[in-house]
Design a protein around this nucleic acid. Sequence first.
DNA 1: GCGACATGTTAACCCAGGTTATTGTCACGG
DNA 2: CCGTGACAATAACCTGGGTTAACATGTCGC
Lengths: 227, 227
Amino acid sequence: MLATVGHTSCQAATLRELALRHTTRTYHRGETIRAEGQRSESIYIVLDGWAEQHAQLRDGRSQVLAVYLPGQMCSADSFGEERLDGTLSALTRLRLGEIERDRFSAYISLYHDAAFELAASQRLQSAIQRRWLMCLGQRSALERIAHLMCELFVRQRVSGQAREWSCPFPLTQQQIAKICGLTQVHTNRVIQELRRRDLAVITRKQLRLIDFEALSATALFDPSYLQ
Amino acid sequence: MLATVGHTSCQAATLRELALRHTTRTYHRGETIRAEGQRSESIYIVLDGWAEQHAQLRDGRSQVLAVYLPGQMCSADSFGEERLDGTLSALTRLRLGEIERDRFSAYISLYHDAAFELAASQRLQSAIQRRWLMCLGQRSALERIAHLMCELFVRQRVSGQAREWSCPFPLTQQQIAKICGLTQVHTNRVIQELRRRDLAVITRKQLRLIDFEALSATALFDPSYLQ
DNA sequence: GCGACATGTTAACCCAGGTTATTGTCACGG
DNA sequence: CCGTGACAATAACCTGGGTTAACATGTCGC
């Protein structure tokens, strides 16, 4: 099953390389990179750590819209947009490469491959968003969290950041809750249930998949959307 | 509030025109246009009626991922993708323009504007998806349905298909339920509640917004994402 | 080694929305 | 004119997950 997504994406390498030739900056956990509605004059590439985009309702409720892992471009899908439609912030201590939009546009029209990569990245983000819609609309709490674990594991595996059956997982239960549209309390219950069933455990910011087959079965996880 | 989205999008006109010079075909309500996983050799443009994209879980649960109105390109965001990640089907009697991918690609590289339109259409779809994520993750049933009404009204108003405070709304309660991730029964309860509160009523496939201000307030609706 | 704040755990209670099933209403074809 | 099937409306009952609040266990700075 995992064989289909086994090769390392070359996107990460290229973007990373490009970003390193420009400004990089470090953010601490929870720090806002770019607030909703602000004009976005730059594009960002995750060099280290995890980032996230979320939107907020007037009354305080908020929902995570995307999680960005090392090598990914943040908010590729709002490239060309005047203003961001969600707040970008750091899920962990985070190092980000930043490239001004005009410079990046120039680069894109110069290197045909880069334009293709941008489009591919947008499509991937969009595909993930559609999966999340299915999760939030139809899956139970248990299925959602199991699905999130599977997704983040596979995404990290594709870009070579996972060992055999474990991978970095630096999220707090609070953060998992916001991604899955649940409360922190119920998230805790579900994580214990997954542990009790010997499917997966989170220890010291590491996710260990005890039984990946069984986990993806309970999550109804199908990795094809991750290419 | 509506003033910001008042102008008619020229996208519809151009794409429509292009599509009319190619194959058109009519589907009946509920008919599948393109099934999940199939290779998509064509792109589709809605000429008349409403279309929808949905994904399905092995156990039968299904979730609508996007609703396409006249003038829109279906699955712009999977253009360039090998295979569709959701089933495309007709919400109503539907007339669709169909253009082979290669032909469309050629057209795009020829007319610079078309490429820009495609990108804009992808971004809009993506922005709507993010809103839906927020709806499914955070909003109550009442808020979701109110939000859907607001969104579909404004989208139709932008493309000139709405009168003053009413617009076509050819969805059954079953279809609304699937869009909002609710059951048909609860959808019925909520629609009645909206009617009782004198916010909106659906009669003979038409939505009448009795009090749009109040409706968008209860939905926490902010139309800025629709450009 | 200690205070303080962030995380994780647990328990009791509650309600929005799901489930199932019956009935009403309308449109359409024969 | 009636049968059939799609759609809408109700009702009774149940449960997954929210809410609140207390407590335990880090972990970090000083």
